[in-house]
Write a protein that binds this DNA or RNA. Structure first.
Lengths: 215, 215
DNA sequence: TGTACATCAGTGAACGCGCGTTCACTGATGTAC
DNA sequence: TGTACATCAGTGAACGCGCGTTCACTGATGTAC
């Protein structure tokens, strides 16, 4: 029985601890909620003490932001792929919804976001930090939506940059419903509803209008 | 200076206290969230002690259910009116969305629901109680939707009883977005998005299909 | 290569705090006669 | 109408608990020479 772990520098070890804390926190927040999961339980899961959390994060909200970042980084690839496929509007919308529904199979992430948002109301710095992180996601969806609209020859009543948060809100609502009533909101219903929303918002591009409005 | 309050029986007084507790809890939950509002603060707002809460409610979750009931009772009238107006599908959807958006101007109620749902995860009795209360609301929306669809001569891919929770989820997501980003989700956007969803889900009734499916 | 010192990730105990819930009690209200 | 007793809405203090955060400390790792 020798050392099982490879020799790591102190920095590498710290980074590894941080990464494991974020991963564990992600899983436990999803399972039990933000408030119901204590830092001590997260650390104990890794045979650490909660003090180690404070060697890596400034606070519990800071840890959550790291969880959000980790998740966002993983999702962005999927959204990028699903969003940029050269599909018709209907298939594009269904594909995006399928990816998002697959990433939140029981609505726990949507619920967690809602809880964190409610629990940290009044923490202006946190709100700002969260909005900063949501922005790029929306921008990516807006891009993909714009391309899909061009391909399909339709326009939307709002610019893509405004449609993205609206569509995100629709999807989030659908996913949140899974938390309440998992059986009645399977992935294909989420897809159908989101595709319906996109379909309903799309109008045929008027023949006289250019592909892009000159500003 | 005589007695300002009219003479009430003990039962009337208790009912009045209960009513005031529910009303105050409703307001404070909306302003500061469920978890962040303590029973002591609610009672103090009425110059009572938190013990009085326990003379009227079994627990904090029980108080929340009373808040939910109070709100639901008030809303049901509005939904009933908005839902039963003999309008075209588009105007009907916009009307319903307008009423719901007006009832939750900043998304706080949607956020509160999400928070409570997350915080009470694992409390099976509470989940069941909440679902029991949501059911009739959905049934009412389902009714109204069915009538509107008949008037408009369209059908939906899901029966009205399934469409109602889906539509509710879409609306809830839109309202929740107001909590994050109030400026960008004014009532008319909520209306337009919900109407778009309804429009997109509706299909012209096939000529050979009867008004109602025989079962 | 070896030694003396510096760094710092993680420890573990304490701090400070607020909460939901319980319970013996009180005094105004209600009831029985 | 008056009296003696019962009820119970609301009191106020205590209970039990868990949490996020802080901090002096440790010992393995890293660095300078």
């Amino acid at each position: 029985m020798q050392e099982l772990r490879p020799r790591l520098t102190r920095d590498e070890r710290k980074a590894q601890t941080r990464e494991r804390l974020v991963k564990t926190a992600h899983a436990m927040f999803l399972q039990r909620g933000y408030h119901a999961t204590s830092l001590e339980e997260i650390a104990a899961e890794l045979d650490l003490t909660k003090g180690s959390v404070y060697a890596n994060f400034a606070s519990k909200t800071d840890l959550f932001l790291a969880v959000f970042d980790r998740r966002t980084a993983a999702r962005r690839r999927g959204y990028g792929q699903a969003g940029s496929l050269p599909l018709g509007l209907e298939d594009w919308a269904r594909g995006l919804a399928r990816v998002m529904a697959g990433d939140d199979p029981d609505g726990r992430w949507a619920g967690l976001l809602g809880e964190v948002w409610a629990v940290t109301a009044g923490d202006a710095a946190f709100r700002a930090a969260l909005l900063d992180r949501v922005g790029p996601l929306h921008a990516q969806i807006a891009d993909a939506l714009e391309q899909a609209a061009l391909r399909a020859g339709v326009v939307f009543p709002y610019p893509a940059a405004e449609m993205a948060p609206i569509g995100g809100a629709v999807l989030r609502g659908l996913l949140l419903q899974r938390l309440l009533d998992p059986q009645r909101m399977p992935a294909d219903v989420v897809e159908a509803a989101f595709a319906g929303f996109i379909r309903g918002m799309a109008c045929p591009r008027p023949p006289h209008s250019p592909e892009r409005e000159d500003r």
